[in-house]
Write a protein that binds this DNA or RNA. Structure first.
Lengths: 163, 163
DNA sequence: TTCCTTGCAAATCCTTTGCAAGGGT
DNA sequence: ACCCTTGCAAAGGATTTGCAAGGAA
């Protein structure tokens, strides 16, 4: 599984981007937490354990750099909160299911048939190279729980008219 | 087309949420701009024309309120920028295509076969009631333009390993 | 009266920037 | 020598909060 990390190193080298200890600390922290999503500040705290002199501004600069290099994806779940994840960290494209009741975040793997994306390209001329989807709703636990209001959900659906 | 506005009014009434002039100004401004996406501040400026005493904080509070009521959807395109839109404003579910080259935002209508969403429900127990997708890539104009670097796009794809 | 809503200003939180210092090439 | 990168502190921007006043129920 050093595979993913290797391809990051290679990509950075290919682009002549210097791998400073700060940048490496950020990369490693992202890698260690590849099953989650980190905010810049969370990442800062984790990376600081690897390289204690690290400054928060450097984390932001590094994230911006890695983003431009295509190593990361940034995901917005809630207002003002940006989280980052290494691309392909889960071995394949994935999406996020956010429970509106308990806030739980779970992931599902690529549900898009490639055909769908090709179709968009054909119809609009837009070439999709990346995407990020959030699905909101109610998780299994909450739906089983006592504070789950079925009626409320029906109303939501109604206001929306369709799902 | 007062239809959409009507259902908002009804929903607010049903929930015993008082429709103050400030709130109505916000709602109307959203409605008038239903083909676009507004940031809170843009919305503030527009709604202020309808009700000049309006304060910015009230706009934020109202957006939060409407969001909880399910009248709105919030969309994050870029770090730190949240935009709002009335739900079903375009008559049907839509998605966003963001060009990484020129920043142009265009919309496409629901490309999800309902089957896909049902399948998620079956497999995970998660009930999707809403979703929001951003697709990133390159628009037709940019791909035709001279500063479009085909090789760069290939590299992106490679780093990502798949689209 | 009591509760809700508001405008304003202050506070807070997240992110970016200016700058001088340190390190690589 | 030159350019890149960094940490720190300050600046900037967006959003939230405290509070006293006004209005509805």
């Amino acid at each position: 599984m050093g595979d993913m990390l290797d391809s990051c190193y290679q990509e950075l080298e290919r682009r002549h981007i210097r791998l400073t200890p700060q940048r490496e600390a950020v990369l490693l922290a992202l890698y260690r937490d590849r099953d989650g999503h980190l905010t810049p500040y969370e990442l800062f705290k984790k990376a600081k354990k690897i390289y204690p002199e690290l400054g928060l501004a450097t984390v932001y600069r590094t994230l911006e750099l890695f983003l431009g290099t295509g190593l990361l994806r940034d995901v917005q779940f809630d207002k003002g909160i940006t989280q980052y994840e290494l691309k392909d960290a889960k071995g394949s494209r994935h999406h996020h299911l956010v429970c509106k009741c308990c806030g739980h975040l779970q992931e599902i793997n690529g549900i898009f048939p490639k055909k769908l994306l090709d179709q968009v390209n054909e119809e609009t001329g837009f070439l999709i190279t990346d995407y990020c989807c959030q699905f909101y709703g109610y998780c299994e636990q909450c739906r089983a729980g006592s504070n789950y209001d079925d009626r409320q959900v029906e109303i939501e659906k109604h206001v929306r008219k369709e799902v």
